[in-house]
């Protein structure tokens, strides 16, 4: 669809403008929106979702998808809790175990997608149920692990100098790391190539299977890390942790301009897309608006940005 006329702005510009509009509106309507406290608080609360979105971006760039990340977060949380409480591991080991669990879950997806060449949507739809089911089976659904040591809780609830939450540098590191990987490393180029045309990439000598495997593995690790962050922030490990977060991550990635068919997209876009959603939810609540409105507007923003973007030629390859 090529129409003459004004060229549409890039997705990143559009999202940045949207973010500024949100900031301006909520500074007026939101109580305490434009305060340092709120900005720092947002970093604390948004960290887990941000990690998942940033890790999902490479998967989608390479033409894949992962719907199991929320469930994997839940399973990793439960593993963390059980390792610490029942197996008696010290918490740093249990946390490492949770990350390992995330990696293992990512590996399951990765092997099915990269080695068995199964469709990633179906695979992760299956593991969406499977991981959540395992988390419920491990705890019979009813068992909640709480009472973690203060040192562990301070990871999620404590603050560094100047009231900066521990999550802020973590999120910044994840942002920087994924940016380097996607935009400055061979990996990113090859993910894109696979997303555009897996067959073409294969002929060009790209290790397609290995790159796909790495993307899914990375997403799994991110789910494990997000589990540690969430358990330490909330202070409990339970089988339903992270329910629905896969959709938040997918929404952020797509909003950020990454094509679901693969090949196109940027880390900056993903992060801005996620920020637009997080600020929307935060700003509306500070403006005393109900949670349902945030849900509705999330849908509206997603559709609106897509429709505006459609002027640039649509999302289909």
């Amino acid at each position: 669809m090529r129409r003459p006329g004004i060229p549409a702005p890039s997705r990143e510009t559009l999202l940045a403008a949207l973010l500024i509009v949100e900031g301006a509106v909520f500074s007026v309507t939101g109580h305490g929106f434009a305060s340092l406290d709120n900005v720092l608080g947002l970093a604390r609360l948004a960290c887990e979702g941000g990690l998942l979105a940033l890790a999902l971006a490479p998967v989608v760039l390479a033409g894949g998808i992962d719907l199991s990340l929320g469930s994997l977060l839940g399973l990793s949380s439960v593993v963390l809790g059980l390792l610490w409480r029942d197996a008696g591991w010290p918490w740093p080991w249990a946390a490492a175990g949770a990350v390992a669990c995330g990696a293992l879950g990512g590996l399951v997806n990765a092997v099915a997608v990269a080695r068995l060449r199964a469709n990633p949507l179906i695979v992760t739809l299956g593991t969406l149920s499977l991981f959540r089911g395992l988390a419920e089976a491990l705890t019979r659904g009813v068992d909640t692990v709480t009472g973690f040591p203060a040192a562990f809780l301070s990871l999620g609830q404590g603050a560094l100098a100047g009231g900066v939450p521990v999550q802020a540098p973590l999120l910044a590191a994840a942002l920087a790391g994924s940016w380097l990987l996607v935009h400055r490393h061979r990996c990113g180029r090859e993910w894109r190539a696979i997303g555009f045309s897996a067959e073409g990439a294969l002929h060009a000598g790209v290790p397609v299977g290995r790159r796909r495997l790495q993307a899914h593995l990375l997403a799994g690790v991110a789910a494990g890390v997000a589990a540690v962050v969430q358990v330490s922030r909330v202070g409990q490990a339970k089988a339903d942790a992270g329910t629905g977060m896969e959709l938040l991550a997918v929404t952020a990635v797509v909003l950020g301009g990454t094509h679901l068919s693969g090949g196109q997209g940027s880390i900056a876009g993903t992060f801005l897309g996620f920020a637009v959603l997080a600020v929307l939810r935060n700003g509306l609540q500070l403006s005393d608006q109900p949670a349902e409105l945030a849900g509705i507007l999330t849908g509206v923003v997603l559709l609106g940005v897509l429709v505006l973007g459609a002027r640039r030629g649509g999302q289909r390859g």
């Binding site: 939101g30 109580h31 305490g32 929106f33 305060s35 406290d37 709120n38 608080g41 604390r44 609360l45 909640t144 709480t146 009472g147 809780l153 609830q157 969430q230 922030r233 909330v234 202070g235 409990q236 339970k238 942790a241 935060n282 609540q285 500070l286 005393d288 949670a291």
Partner: peptide, 30 residues
């Protein structure tokens, strides 16, 4: 986790009192 988040945002907003039906006691207590 979301209850915890909403309380945090209410603190920022500056309400005078909060009344919560807690889904899980530890999770909201912090």
């Amino acid at each position: 986790a979301r209850q915890n988040e909403i309380v945090e945002t209410w603190i920022t907003r500056g309400v005078d009192a909060i009344a919560v039906a807690c889904e899980n006691r530890e999770a909201v207590s912090s």
